[in-house]
Structure formats: structure tokens, C-alpha cells
Design a binder for these strands. Structure first.
Lengths: 155, 155
DNA sequence: ATATAATTGAGAATGATAATCAATTACACC
DNA sequence: GGTGTAATTGATTATCATTCTCAATTATAT
């Protein structure tokens, strides 16, 4: 199993692209980031590790990271695109609290199987799938005093 | 069962908001739009029906339409937010072709049940859920000569 | 070492959406 | 049916994430 850096290097070579110090530093930043992050988070992490890679380069590098399957676009949150690392990670889906922003990850084998079934039915070749459930986490339900079965009343 | 217009009127009254000619025209436009649409599509439809409602008002009205559960935000496509009507419509999910943009709608009872189960497990109160599968539709698979099991090679 | 295509940073451009504000208007109350 | 007031509107400007431009630089194949 290759490291993120090795995998990226290989991907770049495969496409006759260059492995630059900037790309190396971005990979190093990505690996340090936890959970979900956006372009600005990567940029901030670069600052933290004394790197001067520009935000433009961060934006330019993101599609390469996505294509090389090191990260994936997961959610849109407040007009921002959020990514997460996927290399050597198990696929999962998300529960997103619309009140506090908390993200709960889950994996359900049955859901995966059903998706395969659905794709077969429509002769669809899936490259990616995403199940996102939005609502209120337990904490916020209590805080807001929302009762089960009345989510629709609450805004 | 109320019409879109009646439902919206009622919603506005409930909140002490006004039922203006502009809002009436927007509702009329929404009802005429097929499938998925964005703010600009609503604006164009308004032009078609001789209405001069401004784009600003369209943007301002969208959250009201969402809150009143007449439309729902379905997908992000090329930096645009797409909506669709949901009042008196059955819930469904989407298969989105990343080559031609075609959207296939489907409904799967099992998936719905599993989602309820997952929410129960995490004590999560769902207000909305979305299952989006991206990939290649049959037509594009043929056109691009993509073989099943090699989606990952293709970009 | 050289050639060349890829890459970079800085800043300008884009484009969807949101905010501002003065003028207008719906509607609850009399 | 008038009145008062808070909501609404159009026009315009602002915002802000993301993309583009371009001249200068650099990685790498030969």
C-alpha cells in the first residue's frame, strides 16, 4: 500500500505532470487535515507548516487530488465545497445537523447493495454515490426542544 | 388538496408575510417549470409570461418556497443550485450522468426504510435526505465506449 | 546542458447569490 | 373606504468562492 505522497507522485508521472515542491507541500497538508475541509483549510494548513503555496495553486491542485482518488468532494456547506481524504479509507455516508453543523459518518452495507441493484436496473455505471441525510442531531433536538415527528413544524 | 398558489398564500399569511403580485407570478412560473430548475430558469419563465419580477426578488422568494415545502433544493450542478417542485409529488432520488447531465429519477422503498433505521440508530431527526449517484448513463457508456468495471480509468 | 511544456504567484475576472436603500404597497385596524 | 406601518420591491452594489491570465520560473526527458 502506497503513501499519499507516493500515490500522487505516481499519478502525476502517469500523466506527464510534474511533482513540484508546491504539490508535495499540498499533499503533506492534506494528510494532516482531519475530517472535512475546503480549499481555505488546506491553505491555512500550508501556512501552519511554513509553506508559501498560493491559494491559486491550492485550487489548481484540488482537481488533481480528486482525479487521483486521494480526496473526494463530499458536501456543499454554506456555498463551500467540502472534501475529505478517501485513499485507504472506507466509504461512508453522512448525517448533517442543520442546526449545529455536526457531521456524523455512517456505513451501511445494505444501502451499498441496494445502490448496486438500482444501477443495474437503469444500466447506470456509477463512479460515485452520496447519501446525505439532513436534520437535527440528538443534542440539537434537546436544545431546541423538538419532538420526534414534528420536524416539519420547526424551522 | 390545495393548489400551489393556495398553499403559498396560506404559508405567507401564517407568517404575516404579504401575498404580492410578484410572489403570485413567481408561483405561476414555478408551476410551469419542468423537472429541475435554478433561479435563472425561474427568471426566464417569468419573462416568458410577461412578468417583470426582478432577479433579486426571485432569489428572495426561493427560501420562502423552500420553507413552505413547495420546492426543494436537489442538486448542485456546475456551481448552480437546482430545485424541483415537491408539493403533491412523491419523493425520489437521482442518478446523474456526469457526461451528458441527464438525470434519472428513481424511488426505492428499501432505501427509505434503511434511512429510517439509520436515523433511529443515531437518534437523528431527519428533515430531508438525498441519495445521489453519479456516473455514466447507458447512452454515454456506449458513446464513450466505457466498459463496466472500468469506470475508474475513465475521466 | 538544453529545450520545452508544465507550473507558479499575483492579481484581475467571473458569476451566483446576498445586502443595501429609498420608494412603493399589502393589509390589519379603525 | 382611508390610514399607518411593516413588509416588499427594483436597481444597484457588494461579497466571496472559484477560475482565469500572463509573464516568469522550473521539472524533467533527451
Amino acid at each position: 500500500m502506497f503513501s499519499y505522497k507516493e500515490r500522487f507522485k505516481y499519478f502525476l508521472k502517469e500523466r506527464n505532470l510534474k511533482y513540484t515542491p508546491e504539490r508535495k507541500e499540498i499533499i503533506e497538508a492534506i494528510v494532516k487535515l482531519q475530517k472535512h475541509f475546503d480549499a481555505e483549510d488546506i491553505y491555512q494548513q500550508l501556512r501552519r507548516q511554513e509553506s508559501n503555496v498560493s491559494l491559486a495553486t491550492v485550487y489548481r491542485t484540488i482537481p488533481l487530488l480528486v482525479d487521483s482518488e486521494l480526496i473526494i468532494e463530499t458536501l456543499h456547506c454554506r456555498d463551500k465545497v467540502l472534501y475529505e481524504r478517501i485513499y485507504n479509507k472506507k466509504h461512508h455516508d453522512h448525517l448533517v445537523c442543520i442546526n449545529c453543523g455536526r457531521i456524523i459518518e455512517f456505513y451501511n452495507e445494505e444501502v451499498e447493495k441496494l445502490q448496486d441493484e438500482i444501477c443495474r436496473k437503469y444500466q447506470f455505471l456509477a463512479t460515485e454515490h452520496r447519501l446525505g441525510i439532513k436534520g437535527y442531531c440528538k443534542g440539537c433536538q434537546d436544545k431546541l426542544n423538538i419532538k420526534i415527528n414534528s420536524a416539519k413544524e420547526k424551522k
